[in-house]
Design a protein around this nucleic acid. Structure first.
Length: 591
RNA sequence: CGGGAUGUAGCGCAGCUUGGUAGCGCACUUCGUUCGGGACGAAGGGGUCGCAGGUUCGAAUCCUGUCAUCCCGACCA
């Protein structure tokens, strides 16, 4: 490709709208342009990157025995209603109507359609197991699209679905996919961590996410969207929505002598109870009122120093959505007590209560009793407060808590970008959609299903978050739009130009993906653009061209080498061939 | 959905307070000089000032509405 003809409009300044590094660099280096909020044009360089990621995914999925197909983006409402998700997905799904008023959703995922295919076309256990996948544009009407390609409303995703006759066979395939994913991201040059996750709207029981762990460079903003907890001793890792942990034993003791209701004027927060009334947070029973599915109030109980993890609570309640109650709603359920003075006793009407495990061992604890400006001190379960019927883990894990797996290490936290996920769906969809096959004994059985997603466009953006410097992108070789840029410093210099053109032709003939910067620009401009765009290898024809020497520089290394013209092609080929993921830029490649 | 901010040339911004019909840098075009880390000079082209109303002799500027974009919050009894 000739740079003079390449549509790669680079900018000298960062666009004002971009906040995170990958977004800034993708726009500045001429990879993407915004068309609408969360919707982007992929310019030629971007499309090459995306196709490379796709190709890696495709090769590895095929190798794992999956079959590629393509399903429509435009999906009729009926299939979504048959699984019950037309309502569950809510506003997250883009919806359109045709001229006859028929409703459609733009696919945010494709469980329903693939299940429909399986129902109709897979009739016998003899056809199982089968794993089908597609690489297709997806739509999600995000509450707040942001971060460029990391959270768009339109994005490219690989989604795979497997069908089995048993849970055991699903688990086997699940492991195959887990290994495949690890290999895919490794080939993309990305180190990922498989973490346990909540299943969310997709459903099912067991699920894992693949996180690119973003290291935070000096003075840079954190870019990951998810908090990931991991054990410093074993390989336990889970995202915040799912992470469990062991609480250190509390040694807090009440300073009050007897059980009574005392005046606590204006003490609406844990902090003020602690500071003004010497109530240790670890002895406070915190009561929070949530509204489940916009109708049912639920009271969550948790120890005062801990936080509720809302996704866990949502799952414990069995709701599709959950939110904190408003001041008015709080007063309604408590019979007039305002925010800060709500508790599980003395409620005008019984209310559903979910208690975190952390409150069970409490003795001589403090709590609000639905009376304004009052709290009870030295309360005890079943004496002053009935023991809640429902206990669940609804607590957000903390850094420093004990590891639930090995029980020896403690949890640490980092930020991560979710680039893939795998789910064991079981029979959730096959049952709700009545998707069955004929088993060996002649009976009709629901498919046991799994599903497996990879965000193609997000993976590319995550790679930039992980690999960049002040000058621009540092692509892993495997997903760079081109492997090499050839830079003749002065296009007026015939020696330089002829050497550059010769090398360009030789590289192309050898199957190397190469751009020649034939623009009549100053050297500085060309070098800046080459660094910004992130070509892994740069070959410069400059002053030493007259002596038959070309300069080769790797994007991720500071040093360059001068090589005789004849040695450049084999050297470049060696660099491409021997490129390995996770190579540290501090270890110069031997020359 | 709430709160805050911003919409002026392809990009980044000034002008608005105190109305008088638009400017700077980069990019773009032409010419010349330069030529290994975003050159210099000269001459150019390009803007319904987000959109719609209103006030006024006159609106980028004041008022109202609307749309879009960005940020913060969806946060604790």
């Amino acid at each position: 490709m000739r740079f003079s003809k390449l549509l790669a409009p680079t900018l000298r300044e960062n666009p004002a709208e971009a906040e995170v590094v990958s977004h800034q660099l993708l726009v500045r280096a001429g990879y993407i342009r915004r068309l609408a909020n969360g919707v982007y044009n992929y310019l030629p360089l971007m499309w090459r990157v995306l196709r490379k990621v796709e190709q890696i995914v495709r090769e590895e999925m095929d190798r794992a025995g999956a079959q590629e197909l393509l399903m429509p983006i435009l999906q009729p409402a009926e299939v979504w209603k048959s699984s019950g998700r037309w309502d569950v997905y809510g506003d997250l799904m883009m919806r359109v109507k045709d001229r006859h008023g028929r409703e459609y959703g733009l696919a945010p995922t494709a469980e329903e359609v693939i299940t429909d295919i399986a129902t109709k076309e897979v009739r016998s256990y003899r056809q199982l197991p089968v794993n089908l996948y597609q690489i297709q544009t997806k739509y999600r009407d995000e509450i707040r699209p942001r971060f460029g390609l990391l959270r768009g409303r339109e994005f490219i995703m690989k989604d795979a679905y497997s069908f089995h006759t048993s849970q055991e066979d699903l688990e086997r395939e699940y492991q195959v996919m887990a290994d495949t994913y690890t290999r895919i991201f490794e080939r993309c040059g990305l180190e990922t961590r498989m973490v346990r996750s909540d299943s969310g709207a997709i459903g099912g029981s067991v699920s894992h996410e693949y996180m690119v762990l973003t290291r935070i460079a000096e003075g840079e903003q954190e870019s990951g969207e998810n908090d990931v907890f991991f054990c410093n001793h074993c390989d336990y890792a889970a995202n915040a929505e799912r992470a469990e942990s062991i609480l250190p034993e509390s040694t807090a003791a009440s300073v009050y002598e007897k059980t009574e209701i005392i005046d606590t004027p204006g003490a609406t927060t844990i902090e003020s109870l602690h500071q003004e009334f010497r109530m240790h947070p670890e002895l406070i029973l915190k009561s929070l009122v949530y509204i489940a599915d916009e109708k049912t109030p639920v009271m969550a109980l948790i120890r005062g120093d801990l936080d509720v993890e809302e996704v866990k609570l949502q799952n414990a309640v069995g709701a599709n959505a959950i939110r904190l109650a408003t001041a008015e709603e709080i007063e309604a359920v408590s019979g007039g007590a305002s925010k800060g003075f709500i508790g599980p006793v003395g409620l005008p009407k019984p209310i559903r209560i979910v208690a975190d495990h952390s409150v069970k061992p409490l003795k001589n604890f403090f709590l609000a009793v639905n009376q304004v400006d009052k709290h009870m001190v030295n309360a005890n379960w079943n004496v002053d407060v009935p023991m809640p019927e429902t206990f669940a883990d609804i607590r957000l894990a903390r850094v420093g808590d004990g590891c639930p797996e090995c029980r020896q290490g403690t949890l640490e936290m980092t930020r991560g970008i979710e680039v893939g996920n795998i789910f064991q769906l079981g029979t959730k969809y096959s049952k709700s959609m009545n998707a069955t096959y004929t088993a060996e004994d002649g009976s009709e059985q629901p498919f046991v299903m799994g599903c497996y997603g990879i965000g193609i466009s997000r993976t590319a953006a995550a790679a930039i978050e992980r690999f960049h410097d002040k000058a621009g992108i540092i692509w892993p070789m495997a997903i760079a739009p081109y492997q090499v840029i050839v830079v003749p410093v002065n296009t007026q210099d015939e020696t330089q130009m002829s050497l550059a053109e010769k090398l360009y032709a030789d590289l192309q003939a050898a199957g190397v993906e190469v751009v020649i910067d034939d623009r009549d620009e100053r050297a500085g401009v060309k070098f800046k653009d080459a660094d910004l765009i992130g070509f892994p290898i740069r070959v410069t024809a400059g002053k030493k061209a007259a002596e038959g020497l070309l300069e080769v520089k790797m994007r991720d290394q500071a040093q360059a080498v001068d090589l005789p013209v004849d040695e450049v092609l084999p050297f470049v080929q060696k660099q491409i061939r021997e490129w390995r993921p996770f190579a540290k830029s501090s270890e110069p490649t031997p020359v």
